[in-house]
Amino acid sequence: MIFETIVTTTNADGSPHVAPFGVREWDGMVLIAPFRPSASLDNLLRGRCAVLNLTDDVRIFAGSLTGRRDWPVQHAERIDGWVLEGALAHRELELAEIRDDATRPELLFRVVHERMYAPFRGFNRAQAAVIEASVLVSRLHLLPAEKIDAELKYLAIAIEKTAGERELQAWGWLMEKIENFRAEQAGSNQA
């Protein structure tokens, strides 16, 4: 099973790097498998640690994919890393094993500390739609436009019926990203 999370790593200059990741868990370990090239992968290999943030603020998922990476953070407690201030919970991770691969290495982490701040009450349909749309945006260069359009049409129903202010903002960022990508592909992007 894949869990959608926000992973924070530390850039070479010491600043935080915020990125959405689908992670897997088993036997107390967390698997993070970034595609190459990736700033997150570079940070994970260099720093050998990360923070897995659990949040219901889907703006962070959408924002991370649309150039909005400046989210409030605080220092982690046991590792040299960053915790999202708005996280419901976080897990501090240390790299235990690397399964190298030319395209998508698998990095296994052990949990060295975790803290819960507030209960997770679940995602509403609009929040789930934003996360799904975020996955589509992360794969714009891989998926046919027809598939993206069909999935967005379906996801938009949940946005129309159940979105709050945060979800509408995140959805808007993602739609803007898609429009800019398509304009760039067509050679007409003015942004």
Rank of each mutant, 00 (worst) to 15 (best):
R78M: 15
N124Q: 09
A89S: 08
D70S: 12
S138K: 07
D70I: 06
P144G: 11
A89K: 02
E165Q: 08
K153E: 13
V83P: 02
R91C: 02
G86H: 06
L140R: 10
K161H: 14
E94L: 07
F123W: 13
A163M: 10
R139N: 14
L93G: 03
H113C: 06
E106F: 09
L152H: 13
V112L: 04
I131A: 12
A96D: 15
T103V: 15
F109Y: 05
K161Q: 15
L136F: 02
L155P: 04
A156L: 12
V137L: 06
V130I: 04
A96V: 15
F120K: 09
L140H: 05
D70F: 10
E97N: 08
L88C: 09
E92I: 00
L95V: 04
H141F: 13
S64F: 04
T162D: 12
H113D: 10
H141W: 13
D80W: 05
I157V: 15
M116D: 11
R69T: 08
Y117K: 14
L143H: 08
P119G: 03
D101W: 06
L95T: 01
G67Q: 02
E151F: 02
R68D: 13
V73T: 15
P72I: 11
Q127F: 01
A145G: 00
L108Q: 04
L107M: 03
A129P: 10
W71R: 03
G81K: 05
V83D: 00
I98P: 05
E160A: 14
A128N: 04
I159R: 02
A156M: 06
G67R: 11
V83H: 00
L93W: 11
R121Y: 15
R121L: 15
A133I: 06
A133F: 01
E94T: 08
G63R: 06
Q74K: 15
D101V: 05
R121S: 12
E92M: 01
I159H: 04
L155S: 00
I79K: 01
H75Q: 14
R78W: 09
W71P: 01
K161C: 01
E97L: 12
R110T: 09
E92S: 01
A76D: 00
D149G: 02
I159M: 13
